[in-house]
Design a protein around this nucleic acid. Structure first.
Length: 98
DNA sequence: TAGCTGACGCAAA
DNA sequence: ATTTGCGCCAGCT
């Protein structure tokens, strides 16, 4: 039972994100086969709250954490990323190197 | 069924 | 550097 190609691909990609690593919405959309569907990626995330899909590891291309939910937004996401081993400086995500 | 919104991205001003 | 407009797909009203 495959919801839609897009959702399956997106969830599959996000699920493969290793700990301490983050991927931008654009990268995920591209990896999912829809390089221009970064909007849909976000929509799918909130609509599909799958525990195996660490949506908090998906950030914006601006290096900002973006939003996670309406109850905390960036702050909640930042704390989660930091616990995973991702360095967040000045509200911006740093991928292991600077 | 149709229309609007949204956890976004990029270009232009 | 910041703001505005446009484009994209899926989900909700």
């Amino acid at each position: 039972m495959v919801k839609t190609s897009f959702i399956s691909r997106v969830t599959g990609v996000v699920r493969r994100i290793p700990k301490g690593r983050v991927m931008t919405y654009k990268e995920v959309a591209k990896a999912a086969g829809h390089p221009g569907a970064f909007r849909a990626v976000g929509s799918v995330m909130k609509a599909n709250h799958d525990p195996a899909v660490p949506c908090h590891r998906v950030i914006r291309s601006d290096m900002r954490p973006g939003d996670y939910n309406r109850s905390g937004g960036e702050r909640t996401k930042i704390g989660r990323l930091v616990e995973e081993g991702v360095r967040v400086i000045d509200g911006k995500v740093v991928r292991g190197k600077k």
